[in-house]
């Protein structure tokens, strides 16, 4: 069972990838086996005075996410992700959530696939 989370600036798969992890607006979730998209708001972590990255990890762990794609992930959040058994990929910004997932799955996609 895999579940992919992508830090996102909006609640659709066409939203841009949020380059920030902890303070991302939310996470686009994609379940490859069910081919199902959903969205997880990160408001609670964003509002954290500190440790936003860690709060985001808690959120993803509760949602049983297995892989997270983002722009850059802070060192503490990276440690927490490892502890939670969630794989992480950085440098996924500069594209839409759908494109990021597609690139990750190396799946052919419509439109301008990232070369």
């Amino acid at each position: 069972m895999s579940l992919i989370a992508v830090s996102a600036q909006g609640d659709t798969p066409e939203a841009s990838v949020d380059p920030r992890f902890g303070r991302a607006k939310g996470f686009g979730l994609y379940d490859p086996s069910a081919q199902y998209w959903s969205y997880l708001s990160n408001d609670a972590a964003q509002a954290q005075a500190q440790g936003a990255g860690l709060a985001a990890v808690e959120l993803l762990a509760r949602a049983k996410v297995t892989v997270v794609l983002s722009g850059s992930i802070g060192p503490k959040a990276a440690v927490a992700l490892r502890a939670a058994g969630i794989a992480s990929v950085e440098g996924a910004d500069g594209q839409t959530v759908r494109q990021a997932v597609a690139a990750h799955l190396e799946m052919p996609q419509r439109g301008d696939a990232k070369s």
Binding site: Q48, G51, L54, A55, E58, R62, A80, A84
Partner: peptide, 10 residues
């Protein structure tokens, strides 16, 4: 924890 020094992972 107000400082996120402890988090619950599942």
């Amino acid at each position: 924890c107000a400082f996120k020094a402890i988090i619950a992972l599942g």
